[in-house]
C-alpha cells in the first residue's frame, strides 16, 4: 500500500515540471497568436482602395445610381425571408437628392425629395406626403432623417465615404479577397470587419473606382441577416432642378410626421 503511494508521489514529482511547462506554454501561445493576427488584420491596400473610392465619389458633381437590393428579414420565429427592391438615387452635390425606393414583400414604395431647403417623403401606395425643414447638405440631412424622424435611407454610405463623416476608425480588419466580375465589370473584392457589421465591397478596377456591389452582414442581430446591393452608375446625368422638387400628384394629401425622441430626453419632460 505505502509502496504504491510512494510510486504515485514519485510520478507526480517527475511529471510536475512537464505539467508546468505545458501550462505556461499554452498561456504564452495565446497572446503570441493574436499578435501575429494583429499584423495582418488591416491590409493597407484595402484601406487605400476605400480612400481612393471615397475621393472619387466626393469628386463627382452629380450622379445617379440604381441599387438592386436583396435583404434578409428575420421573423420573430427566426425564419429568414429574402425581400427584393430597387432604389434609385439622383444626386447633385452638396444639397440636392431625390430617391425612389421600392421594396417588395414589406410594401414599401416611397419617394424622397431634398431640394436644399425641404425634405419630403411621399408614399406611392397611400398617396400621403409629409415634409420637414432640411439642413444645407446631404450628409446633415441623412443624419437628421435617421435620428429625429427615424427614416432609414439605405446605402447612406455613398454620401459618407470620402467625407469627414467616414469612420475608418470603426474598421477592425480589412482584407483584399480577389478580383471578380460584377455585371461583367472587373472589380477588386475587399472584406472589412467592424464591431457591429461585417461588410464586403466590390470596387471597379479602373480609373473610375466606383462601388459596384456592397454586402452588409448585421452581426449583432438574430440570424445575422444580410443586405446585398448591386449598383449601376451614371456619373454624368442630366438632372434639371425640377428633379429634386416635390410637386404633389393629384389625390395626394399632406399629413404630419412623427418626431422620435431619445428616451432620456423625453423622461425629463
Amino acid at each position: 500500500m505505502s509502496n504504491r503511494w510512494r510510486s504515485r508521489i514519485g510520478m507526480l514529482l517527475i511529471s510536475a515540471p512537464f505539467l508546468m511547462l505545458s501550462t505556461t506554454g499554452c498561456l504564452a501561445a495565446q497572446p503570441a497568436a493574436s499578435e501575429v493576427e494583429d499584423e495582418i488584420l488591416i491590409q493597407p491596400e484595402a484601406t487605400a482602395a476605400l480612400t481612393e473610392m471615397g475621393n472619387y465619389l466626393n469628386s463627382l458633381k452629380s450622379f445617379t445610381v440604381i441599387s438592386e437590393m436583396l435583404m434578409d428579414e428575420v421573423l420573430l420565429t427566426g425564419q429568414k425571408i429574402l425581400v427584393t427592391g430597387t432604389t434609385k438615387y439622383s444626386t447633385r452635390l452638396p444639397d440636392r437628392l431625390q430617391i425612389s425606393s421600392k421594396i417588395e414583400g414589406i410594401d414599401r414604395d416611397h419617394e424622397y425629395y431634398y431640394d436644399g431647403k425641404t425634405f419630403t417623403i411621399y408614399g406611392n401606395q397611400d398617396k400621403y406626403y409629409a415634409l420637414f425643414d432640411a439642413p444645407d447638405s446631404i450628409g446633415k440631412l441623412l443624419d437628421i432623417a435617421q435620428d429625429q424622424y427615424n427614416i432609414e435611407i439605405p446605402l447612406r454610405d455613398l454620401f459618407y465615404w470620402g467625407t469627414e463623416k467616414n469612420r475608418m476608425v470603426d474598421v477592425q480588419s480589412a482584407t483584399f479577397i480577389d478580383q471578380s466580375r460584377i455585371s461583367g465589370t472587373l472589380c477588386n473584392h475587399y472584406a472589412f470587419q467592424q464591431e457591429d457589421v461585417d461588410w464586403q465591397i466590390w470596387i471597379e478596377d479602373d480609373d473610375t473606382p466606383l462601388p459596384l456591389q456592397l454586402v452588409i452582414t448585421s452581426k449583432l442581430e438574430n440570424g445575422q441577416p444580410q443586405y446585398i446591393s448591386t449598383m449601376t452608375w451614371d456619373v454624368a446625368p442630366q438632372l434639371p432642378d425640377g428633379t429634386f422638387v416635390f410637386t404633389p400628384p393629384e389625390g395626394a394629401h399632406k399629413i404630419d410626421i412623427a418626431v422620435f425622441d431619445d428616451p432620456e430626453e423625453s423622461t425629463q419632460q
Binding site: 420573430l76 425571408i81 469612420r167 452588409i216 441577416p225 446591393s229 431619445d262
Partner: peptide, 23 residues
C-alpha cells in the same frame, strides 16, 4: 405576431450621426 419582423438588417455600414446606438 409570427409574421412580424425584428427588422434590424443594416443597410449602411455607418451608424447614424449622433448617439450611435439609436439604431
Amino acid at each position: 405576431d409570427a409574421r412580424k419582423s425584428e427588422n434590424r438588417t443594416r443597410t449602411s455600414i455607418h451608424k447614424s450621426g449622433h448617439k450611435g446606438g439609436s439604431r
